[in-house]
């Protein structure tokens, strides 16, 4: 009986202890990475310093990911000129990566798409590899928000989070000095 009790305690601790942080991951440094995009250009997370960045992990075989993508494209179109960056990281491994760019082209998406073919980055951000998976990263490259999965309506909360982060970024950025009027 004592063995059972010990076992239950171990599992309970494993479950409850992490739960003491209700704002999961907030304020933690986002792991740095460098990946190539579908046009072969290297992209690093540190290049996003000073921007509000939404990282979204997806795959060609993930149906909820396909349903979420049009909403993310709209988000990108709306805020990309306001300090927002969207990095769509494909978790397709080496065996299905050839399908990534044709899928993006066939839908007419224009957001940046990065390739994580050896699953290193997705393993860092979301070890159980549930897709889709999103993290909102602040201008200081710290995590602002995490979200697992996608169901219809989730895009509303995503946009609210992005807008709040952009508002905070705008408030923290000193206004540009207006050019002196010339006579």
């Amino acid at each position: 009986m004592r063995r059972w009790l010990a076992l239950i305690l171990v599992f309970t601790f494993a479950l409850v202890a992490p739960g003491t942080n209700p704002r999961a991951g907030e304020g933690q440094a986002a792991p740095e990475f460098t990946l190539r995009d579908i046009d072969n250009k290297p992209v690093s997370l540190k290049d996003m310093t000073g921007k509000v960045t939404l990282i979204s992990f997806w795959a060609t075989w993930c149906a909820p990911c396909q349903v979420e993508m049009p909403h993310l494209q709209k988000l990108y179109d709306t805020y990309k000129d306001k300090g927002f960056m969207l990095l769509m990281i494909s978790a397709d491994d080496a065996r299905s990566v050839s399908r990534v760019k044709p899928l993006i082209k066939s839908k007419g998406y224009s957001f940046p798409v990065l390739l994580d073919t050896d699953t290193k980055v997705v393993s860092q951000y979301n070890p159980n590899k549930t897709l889709p998976y999103s993290e909102l990263i602040g201008p200081d490259l710290k995590v602002l928000w995490q979200h697992q999965g996608y169901t219809a309506g989730d895009e509303v909360e995503t946009e609210r989070r992005v807008k709040a982060a952009l508002d905070a970024l705008a408030a923290a950025t000193p206004p540009a000095v207006a050019p002196t009027a010339t006579p």
Partner: peptide, 13 residues
């Protein structure tokens, strides 16, 4: 985790 090329020679992911 590591993969080379299209995974034919090595794909431990």
């Amino acid at each position: 985790y590591i993969a080379f090329g299209r995974g034919l020679a090595l794909s431990l992911v």
